[in-house]
């Protein structure tokens, strides 16, 4: 699903976000990326939907060599990737329903279909009763669930989450991670950047560790369920 081959990302000013990273994520896998802040977790995730382009090396996503992907094709790549952010990135002047519907509207899904799929996505994150609410009236955990609903509403084959539980207390964090596990269980490849080592150990999935932009660990910890 995702294939990094000797990928280096150097930012203007000389700072290296990633240094020669080679890794492979198979379809249907669930992978955590950890490391101290500035280790390159975000850079790694940003290279997949082409929010950044690598300085060296090659990234292949779902069989597409991103180095050869033209600017005009980028939106179509991003439609196949559900992205979840630490700061949710919701539109605050629109209702929960409209936020979740946005990817469907962008993809040109017929409006009769939109309502059904938005409600299905909201149902999966247990927010069906909040569809008319505005994001500001929701708690942090609820806002993050809206973000997840928006990411999965188009049923993408790949989910990327950058510190999805960064601002949440442990109980809510675990709840959010279980939602990701549910999606992974139905075949969605899931990559989550997080520094919540305790929770990651408890869940037990493949676990990639970055340090100063280099890959220093790739292991399955604990027992994998399912």
């Amino acid at each position: 699903m995702i294939h990094f081959d000797g990928v280096t990302k150097r930012y203007p000013g000389g700072h290296e976000g990633l240094r020669g990273v080679t890794l492979k994520v198979e379809q249907g896998e669930m992978v955590f990326v950890t490391g101290h802040s500035g280790a390159g977790k975000s850079t790694l995730l940003k290279l997949i939907p082409l929010l950044e382009r690598p300085t060296r090396g090659q990234v292949v996503v779902a069989g597409i060599n991103l180095g050869r992907l033209g600017k005009r094709r980028i939106p179509h790549l991003r439609r196949r990737i559900g992205m979840i952010f630490q700061d949710h990135r919701l539109l605050h002047d629109r209702s929960v329903y409209d936020n979740v519907a946005l990817p469907l509207v962008i993809s040109g899904v017929h409006h009769r279909e939109v309502g059904r799929r938005v409600r299905a996505a909201l149902d999966k994150v247990n927010l069906l009763d909040k569809e008319r609410a505005f994001p500001v009236t929701l708690s942090g955990g609820e806002q993050q669930r809206v973000g997840i609903a928006r990411a999965v509403v188009t049923r993408p084959p790949l989910l990327l989450a950058d510190e999805p539980t960064g601002n949440l207390d442990p109980g809510l964090s675990e709840e959010i991670m279980h939602i990701f596990e549910d999606f992974n269980r139905v075949g969605v490849t899931t990559v989550i950047a997080s520094h919540d080592l305790a929770l990651i150990d408890q869940l037990g999935h493949r676990h990639i560790t970055l340090s100063d932009g280099a890959l220093v660990g790739d292991a399955i910890r604990g027992a994998r369920d399912g």
Partner: peptide, 16 residues
């Protein structure tokens, strides 16, 4: 600006 950034993030084309 924020709305445009988000729309681009989730695959909105320039035309959209």
């Amino acid at each position: 600006r924020e709305e445009i950034v988000i729309t681009k993030l989730i695959g909105g084309t320039d035309g959209f």
